[in-house]
Design a binder for these strands. Sequence first.
RNA 1: GUGACUGUAGCUCAGUUGGUUAGAGCGUCAGGUUGUGGCCCUGAAGGCCGGGGGUUCGAGACCCCUCAGUCACC
Length: 403
Amino acid sequence: MRFTLEHTDRSGSPGKARAGLLETDHGRIETPVFMPVGTLGDVKAIEHRELKENHAQIILGNTYHLYLRPGVDVIEEAGGLHRFIGWDLPILTDSGGYQVFSLAQLRKLSHDGVLFKSHIDGSKHVFRPEDVVDIQRKLGSDICMVLDECPPYPCSREYAHRSNELTLQWAERCKRRFEKTEPLYGHTQALFPIVQGSVFDDLRTQSAEELVDMNFDGYAIGGVSVGEPKEEVYRITELNCALLPEEKPRYLMGVGSPLDLLECIDRGADLFDCVMPTRNARNGTLFTTWGKMTIRNAAYAKDFRPIDEACACYTCRNFSRAYVRHLSQNKEILGHQLATIHNLHFYLWLTGEARRRILDGGFRSFKESLLKRYAENERTRGQGQDKTSRPRRKRRDYEALES
RNA sequence: GUGACUGUAGCUCAGUUGGUUAGAGCGUCAGGUUGUGGCCCUGAAGGCCGGGGGUUCGAGACCCCUCAGUCACC
């Protein structure tokens, strides 16, 4: 894997937005980029073909979930995750560290690793840092993640400190195992560690510095988006990005809303993933350049315009708000699909457009215009007003956004 | 015309032997969802309980009358 920093746009504020190129054996990834979450080897409610049509460059998988089902033996026998799921572009696999947080009721932490009680059948499974690397070797993901502990928010300084120490040790163990093992399927793999430290600046700093000293291919910032205020996410991202090497990619885990993406791109993050566009699509929340809309609302019952008239996605080209609302209200599978296509198209357009604007120096105006629109939309939401539409213009994927 | 059954929220219905401010689901309105155990969660609005009279300390429940609907039989 190779990362090339192409340009840093200092026009924004704080002004550290980067455009880069991440090259893997399964293809190039232009950053900043949003990575759709495909926990079980599929991005929910959307086909691989449609992901590609909407310019997805890389998707996620989850070590813990794939280990439980279908099991690593199945995937290994299939020839790795790419072949098993029929996806030939890059894949990043999360280690299961997040499940240490989200499935806190079902696991026990020890110095050595995590003991999970399966949410499927209650069976017990030990995940040591070394196990997680071995599994990801068998999955064959292009980017592997170290096992970490994602502490909850709020958490005490003492807890954050202990957790931080554990995550650092685990990162080192993962790296050692990673270096002692080889890829199984003929393509190279990279390993990213995860900066932790909760919301404590000194712990965040220590975590970043020690991980940088270990010299990884890229770095992730974790432990955010677990319930803390947005400002904390931004502050931590800025702090951590400043401590990470310029020439390596930075992955901000679990972030976020469209505005979060722009704020964090502006602070130097390159890679993002979040369930928001896919999960919210299934729950009836659609994202547009004007803000979010709850498509189930009665206001759309006879609204035969597309979700966003400026959007070029399959859903907006062919279907009306009224129809998507009808499907969503009836929880039709097609409704989930159309909403997911739209939301992912928007997210992928958003990071792609951010990249184009970074390269041409217009990132600041891009970010500020979107911020302004979202703020205006939030002011008038829930008052029965519709600010999500604009006079008809050529469907060219949100061109002339600053107008 | 006779008989039976049914009238409770916009819709479909619960409401125990009559006992506080009448509930649910759906719908409506709104909010939430951030390295996906959840197509899920949370809130709000919305009822002279068909109408009238009576019994009772107290009636959505009991009695009478009446209106409407459904079914059966003339």
